[in-house]
Simulated scan of single mutants.
Amino acid sequence: MHAGVGQTVAKIILFGEHSVVYGYPAIAMPLRNLRMIARVEPTTRPSELSSLGWVGPLDEAPARFASIVRAVDAALEFAGHPNARLRIETHAEFPPERGLGSSAAAAGAVIRAVLSAFDVDAEPEDLFDLTQMAERIAHGHPSGLDATATSSQSPIHFQAGATTAVQINLSAWIVVADSGIHGSTRETVGHIREEHERCPEVTRPRLAELGRITAEAVDDVRAGDVSGLGQKMNDAHRLLAELGVSNARLDQLTAAARSAGAVGAKLTGGGRGGCVIALARTSADAKRIAAALGMAGATGTWVYAPHAYEVAA
């Protein structure tokens, strides 16, 4: 065994959060400049974790690191060295609990680092399955979208476990803004599940509408229909708010983005905190929207050009 390194990235969900859990489609985009890096090396001491400012024995890690602990165990079992002792370190270039896929990214990076340390190759399907083991600890019943998107090189269409690359032909920019509030995907997924069981006649039509919007948005991103996509973002945010996964801060930020010229804006990820995304027609518009979001209380902003991705045929 030797030192190993693994890397994944942050992601945003353009459309389909929550409804994807019920079999509807989702569109997600990796944020390749926001990396999650894991490093592991052998040690003679009990396994140790250094992550998000916490350092200590792996078996004493706080509950928020449970998915990383599971990722280490799963990767060691896959590598055939379940009792190996490791020093594990993660470094994130984006904040946790913001709907950017931090738990899946951390698990995926750690798994890749452990397998690298043992020179063990794994197929994409194996990496997905291992990451899902860890994600079940973090989110209970994950759709698999985060596990896929945080290791993707291009935007993806995801539905019922099947993934295909999406060619985005939009001449537009996406502004991502951090609300500064921790979100909990596990909590919001659980909330919608409870509402789905309690009032299916109310919840099911909204989830179905989110599914329809996402399916039509795929055509918009391929055709370059910025106006149509922006309106669908606004409609999706309204439906997510009706499902109870928005909050006052997210509503305030999406409104501020629209007032600053965004074609559309919505929450992204689990909701009740985390991030919002806004669609801008030009780079200058994106900069103005990012500044307005900062004035409205966003603690961080990033601007991306989705048309910059190259999708292999």
Rank of each mutant, 00 (worst) to 15 (best):
A122M: 02
P57Y: 10
A63I: 10
G101P: 02
A104H: 12
A106P: 03
R35W: 04
A134Q: 07
T43N: 02
P95F: 07
A71P: 02
A105V: 04
G108D: 07
D119T: 12
L49N: 03
F65W: 05
A75D: 08
R39T: 13
A92V: 11
P62A: 01
L145N: 01
A122T: 01
P57G: 13
E93H: 11
I88P: 03
I137V: 14
E97K: 12
F128D: 00
Q132N: 09
T43I: 07
L127Q: 04
V120N: 00
D126V: 08
A63H: 10
V40P: 07
A117D: 04
E135L: 03
S47K: 08
R39I: 11
F94I: 06
E125K: 14
E93I: 02
G99D: 05
E89T: 15
F118Q: 06
E97M: 11
D59H: 14
A106Q: 12
A92G: 15
S51N: 06
R85H: 15
G80P: 08
P82H: 09
R136V: 08
S51R: 06
P142F: 03
D119N: 13
L127E: 01
P62N: 05
P96N: 06
E125A: 14
R87V: 09
M36F: 06
A113Q: 03
S50D: 13
E77F: 10
I111D: 00
A66L: 07
T90D: 09
L34S: 01
A92W: 11
A109K: 00
